[in-house]
Simulated scan of single mutants.
Amino acid sequence: MDLLSDVIVSMRTGQPGAGRVQWHEPWGHDFSADPRTAGFLIVVRGSGWLRTEDHQPVELGVGDVVFSPRGDAYAISSEPTTPLTTEVAELAPTESFGSVCAGTPGGRTTVTLCGGYRVDPTRAHPLLGELPAILHLPARAGHRHQLQMAIEALSAELETPTLGTDALVPALLDALLLYVLRAWFDTARGGGHGATDWAAALADRAMLTALDAMHRNPAHPWTVPNLAAQSRLSRAAFSRRFAGLTGRPPMAYLTWWRMTLAARLLTDSDAPLREVALRVGYTSEFAFAAAFRRAHDIAPGRYRRQRQSGRAAALP
């Protein structure tokens, strides 16, 4: 996979969930912090206010997207000072879809899409650490066509579920998340949210070439010289630029990514340890186990048993 696709796959666990919520004035809801969930909210009709602990309220309009990549708390309400509640239980439960009404019908109505992705904080890619705690993407006429199309399709499926909805909604949620991340990094590169190292790395053709090479083929015996050659830079220039933008030397990043991928394979598949080792670039199962233990402080076999038993215990 390419880098951004891998970011999505590595961070998410299980199926995402979403709900369509009709808010009847006056309304206000507090979304509490949950580091195991990356949550989003999209206004599809009406308006509201985004409220966070450290900033003044921000007015939301149709098409605006709010994204909490690390599960930080935020609130929305019909007016900046409307009292907040948490009484509307499971507005957008993960791993399910549906519609909910909040408040007493009769007043002005705002409709939002609310959703969440169950995430494993231990597998989060470092570029997610550069996103703001609460990301607000205001709708702009003539911009982000693909994001708006994904929003419209998701809204239609949640409003009127029909044959295939259960398969379509998770795919639309993944597309939505990718479009949100693309939009933010495009804006960050343009200075809209302040420059970040990973935004600069994604805009740097040489760095993106090397990153995509590692992500598309992690089992390849990459070295600094052949990655530098892929990027058409000298070894010294490549190493310096890569470490400066990503925060890790090239080989340290490759090892980190291989161990993150191995953790996912051990959790989500029954592939033998030798196969997992080969898929992340180790011809020796012993060398793989040693590298995995250094990265995760646990042997790969024991890691698999703990993760899969925990997942089984969480099933109804």
Rank of each mutant, 00 (worst) to 15 (best):
D30W: 03
G106N: 06
G61L: 07
W23N: 01
L84F: 12
G39R: 04
H24W: 15
P57F: 04
P105C: 04
G71A: 05
C114E: 06
H29I: 09
T86H: 13
F67T: 09
V88T: 13
T52R: 07
Y74Q: 08
T52D: 09
D34C: 11
F67D: 04
I76F: 00
S99I: 09
A102F: 14
E90Y: 07
S78K: 02
F31R: 04
R108P: 04
G115I: 13
Q56E: 15
D54M: 13
E25F: 11
P83Y: 12
Y74K: 01
C114Y: 05
G106D: 03
F97K: 01
T86D: 10
V88M: 10
D34T: 12
E90C: 02
T52Q: 11
T37M: 04
D64S: 11
D64W: 07
G116I: 00
G63A: 15
P93S: 12
V44D: 02
V100E: 08
G46H: 08
P105E: 08
H55Y: 04
G28W: 00
T104W: 07
S68H: 14
L113V: 15
P69W: 06
T82Q: 00
I76M: 00
S99E: 05
P83G: 09
H24Y: 12
L84M: 13
L60C: 06
S99T: 14
W49V: 10
A92C: 08
S78W: 00
I76Q: 00
E79F: 01
R45I: 11
A75Y: 01
C101K: 15
T81M: 08
G116A: 11
F31C: 03
P93F: 04
L41P: 03
Y74F: 15
V111T: 15
T82K: 00
S96L: 09
G46W: 01
W27G: 03
I42T: 14
W49C: 01
T109M: 12
A75C: 12
S77D: 10
G28V: 04
H55P: 02
R108E: 12
L41I: 04
P83N: 12
T37I: 10
F97Y: 13
V66D: 02
R118W: 07
E59Y: 09
Y117A: 05
E53V: 15
H29Q: 12
P57I: 06
G48Y: 02
P35E: 08
F97Q: 03
V111C: 09
G116L: 03
S99M: 14
R108V: 10
F97W: 08
E90D: 11
S47W: 10
G71I: 10
T85I: 05
P93R: 05
V100T: 15
V62P: 00
G39D: 11
A38S: 15
Y117H: 13
S47N: 14
C101I: 15
V43R: 13
E87M: 09
E87S: 14
W27T: 00
D34H: 13
L91D: 07
T109Y: 00
I42E: 04
R118L: 08
P35L: 03
P69N: 14
L60T: 03
I42W: 09
D34A: 06
F97I: 03
S47V: 09
L113M: 15
S96Y: 12
T52H: 05
G71M: 01
S77Q: 02
S96H: 08
L41C: 14
A89E: 14
E79G: 07
G46K: 13
A33H: 10
P57T: 05
T94V: 13
V66E: 06
C101W: 14
V65Y: 10
A73G: 09
